[in-house]
Amino acid sequence: MKKINLICIGCPMGCPLTIEKDGSKIISVTGNTCPRGDAYARKELTNPTRIVTSTVAVEGGDVMRISVKTKQDIPKDKIFACVKELKNVSIKAPVHIGDVILENVAGTGVDVVATKGSSW
């Protein structure tokens, strides 16, 4: 039996989580104030994931760059592969919030979408 302490990143409260593990099996998660904490702990110990945010260049828009994010969280070890794929991406204006900028980024099956719009 092993005890692991984590801080939940599900919301700004930052609950201190305690996870009891037996080998690779999670026995219990305590310290969370909502179900998100439990889910976070289980995922963090098996397949940690993060939302990645970045920016891409805009061509012919009213701004130079727009912000983007992965539509869902992607595996932590794919974060750098994800931003590298965004390196040379340039998008033509107009762009709207939610528009897909890059499909299936770094083979994660997750799309990168615009989080800001740009008119031309």
Partner: peptide, 25 residues
């Protein structure tokens, strides 16, 4: 908010996690 492109905004207000520009929008 326009330059706060990270996520983590809006959990209280919109019950979902938004980036700064999305929250502003």
């Amino acid at each position: 908010l326009n330059q706060c492109i990270h996520n983590g905004f809006g959990l209280h207000t919109f019950k979902e996690e938004l980036t700064g520009p999305e929250y502003a929008a």
